[in-house]
Simulated assay, not measured.
Amino acid sequence: MTEDGFDLGPRRHPRRMSLTPMIDVVFLLLIFFMLSSRFGMDAVLPIAGGAEGAASEWQGPPRLVDVAPDSISLNGVPTDPDELVAALKALMPEDGGAVVLRARDDADLQQMVDVMDRLSAGGLSNLILIE
C-alpha cells in the first residue's frame, strides 16, 4: 500500500516490442520486388564495331543513314524507308561493307531499332552505330 491507500500491485516490466510484424513487412517487400523484377536475357541487337576497333580501309561510296524523328536520310538525301535497302545495296561494294547509322534530332530508340531491323531483313548486317 502507498501513502494514499492505493495498492498498485506488483511492478510490471514494460512489454518488449514484437519484431514479427516488421519481419512480415520485410518479407512481403522482398516477395514483391522479386516478382516485379525481370529475370532472363534482354533482346540483343548485333552491331558491328568496324573491325573490332582496328583501323580498316573504307571501301566504296559513303553509306551514312541519318534517322530523325520524322524522316530517314541516306548521305544527306531524304529517302523513303521502303526504298532504303535498295538504295544502300546500290552503294555497297562487292565484298560487303558497313552501313553507318546516326540518330539525329532526338530520334528515339524505337525508330533506330526499326531501321536496323529493316536493314537486317534486307541482308545488310554490318551496321555501325555512331553518336
Rank of each mutant, 00 (worst) to 15 (best):
L88I: 02
L127E: 00
R104S: 03
D7Y: 11
A103C: 11
L74T: 02
P81A: 01
L19D: 02
V115Y: 00
P78D: 02
L8A: 05
E94R: 04
M17F: 12
R102E: 01
A54S: 12
R16M: 12
V25I: 14
L101A: 01
G123T: 01
R15Y: 12
V26Q: 09
V65D: 00
L35R: 06
L129Y: 04
E3Q: 15
F27L: 13
A86N: 12
F32S: 10
D80C: 00
P81Q: 01
E131D: 14
L30K: 05
G97A: 12
F39D: 08
A51D: 14
V44C: 07
D95W: 01
D66G: 05
F39L: 15
A87E: 05
R104Y: 01
A121P: 08
I130D: 00
A86D: 12
A68C: 07
A90K: 11
V115M: 02
L28Q: 07
I130G: 03
P10H: 11
R11G: 10
R118L: 09
I31K: 04
E131K: 14
D4S: 15
L28K: 03
V67G: 04
G50P: 04
P93Y: 02
D7A: 08
M92L: 06
D114S: 11
F32A: 12
M34V: 10
R12H: 08
D70C: 00
M17P: 07
R63K: 03
D106N: 14
D114P: 08
D24E: 15
A54L: 04
P62V: 08
G60E: 03
I72R: 00
A48V: 10
P46I: 13
M22R: 13
L127G: 05
R15A: 15
G50I: 05
D105T: 02
L29T: 10
R63L: 02
D117A: 13
R12E: 06
S36V: 12
G9N: 11
Q110Y: 06
M22A: 10
K89S: 11
A55M: 10
A98F: 05
I72V: 10
L30H: 05
A86E: 12
A55R: 07
R11K: 15
R118F: 06
P61D: 13
L64E: 04
P78Q: 07
